[in-house]
Amino acid sequence: MSSDRRDFVLTAGKLLVLTAPAAAYLEAVETGKAEEPAYKMAEHYWGMIVDVDKCIGCGNCVRACKTENDVPVEPYFFRTWVERYHVAEGAEHPDVDSPDGGYSGFPEKYAAGDGAKSFFVPKLCNQCAHSPCTQVCPVGATFESPDGAVLVDKSYCLGCRYCVQACPYGCRFIDPRTKTVDKCNLCYHRITKGLTTACCESCPTGARQLVDLKDPKDPVHDFLRDHKIQVLKPQLATGAKVYYNGLDGSVR
């Protein structure tokens, strides 16, 4: 049968790019029958806490993310970025900027003591539990994983860009090299190995913290209980799992 031939081509392809044990492991996971023994999807449910009052706009997360995930370094694509808000008293709209996504930090552009409220807001994929983006994918090339990460299947994506339109937060882009969609996958290759995400690892102030909502020992539970928490654009009911502490009402 031709399916055999197809399998052969797939296997041969994998052997070309992967070492034998990696290919065998990949094969096992691909059929959906096996998981890496150390990591059980059913035991985790990932999210993130962002503490707005701790963000200093250093851009470490943006740089780390680009390094870790090989995100196109040239502007203008980001898996994570930082925005600077500047809200003058009584102003209807905030002034917002994000030069190069915060990759090179934020050169001062406001006069000190101008009476306005100013702060940084890190953004990333909200890993929505009811993702508008995965809902619209025509072929199932992006999806919510059982452990709560919104992932992309790069080998299956058509590049139709419907999901980019459907994301209310602007978290998706088309990678010009692969012509498929790309977005924050919560460093899925790290968190499934017991590491934290690259952005959290390199955040100097702990403004962002990876959390496992299914782990009863995760400090997230205390944090969520002890703070006034908000998600972005709650009116859209996306089930966002990036929880912001100290989020100002002016943030979009």
Binding site: Y25, G140, S145, P146, S155, Y188, H189, K193
Partner: peptide, 14 residues
């Protein structure tokens, strides 16, 4: 696991 290729999970992990 859902309407997607189960192998995509592994692809995201390699």
């Amino acid at each position: 696991y859902g309407h997607y290729r189960a192998g995509a999970l592994a692809d995201n992990r390699v």
